[in-house]
Amino acid sequence: CCDLDLHKQPKGLEDPEILARETVFSVSEIEALYELFKKISSAVVDDGFINKEEFQLALFKTSQKESLFADRVFDLFDTKHDGILGFEEFARAISVFHPNAPIDDKIEFSFQLYDLKQQGFIERQEVKQMVVATLAESGMNLSDEIIESIIDKTFEEADTKHDGKIDKEEWRSLVLRHPSLLKNMTLQYLKDITTTFPSFVFYSQVDD
């Protein structure tokens, strides 16, 4: 009944070996990650790509929620800037969140995440916008006075050149002093991805 070609890789996963070489994942992990990708990318339109609506749906279980950060993360994943994520973009970006990924990659990614206007530095107004968005997203309520004092303190510590902005070098020394700021850049789940998505073995090309 079937014309199964077991050696043919699924669409979007044509070259798992190259992706494995260029990320921290093994070939099996790339294949397992593809299972997650398939699930997310078929939620609204089964076209082999994750669009913003599907990304939001996977993150929040609703596509209605407005989130500055979900948008920002999506845009950073979308290295081809075409509004959709192919598997390769997804795998390369997620790789940065692996516990074994180099800390410099995490520092760079987090800096870009917070550099909303992509000017090469994080300015006070951007930090305020992000704090306000975080509070709104989590339903917390802080007075403007308290928000300003939190930002004052943060800049006192981070902005060592006293020019009102945080550049990459200042960001790096801040997060090295406070590693907890990079906590959300590491997903322990990625260590167990082959057991979370075991169905990749049905077409796997490798035994590792």
Binding site: L59, L68, F69, V131, I150, T154, L174, N184, L187, I193
Partner: peptide, 25 residues
């Protein structure tokens, strides 16, 4: 006390930055 919290610590708790959700079945 929130007044001594680092702004980035606060920001990094945002739901939109918790990609772990993607891996929860």
């Amino acid at each position: 006390r929130p007044a001594v919290m680092n702004a980035f610590e606060l920001i990094s708790t945002s739901q939109g930055l918790n990609l772990g959700v993607l891996f929860e079945k």
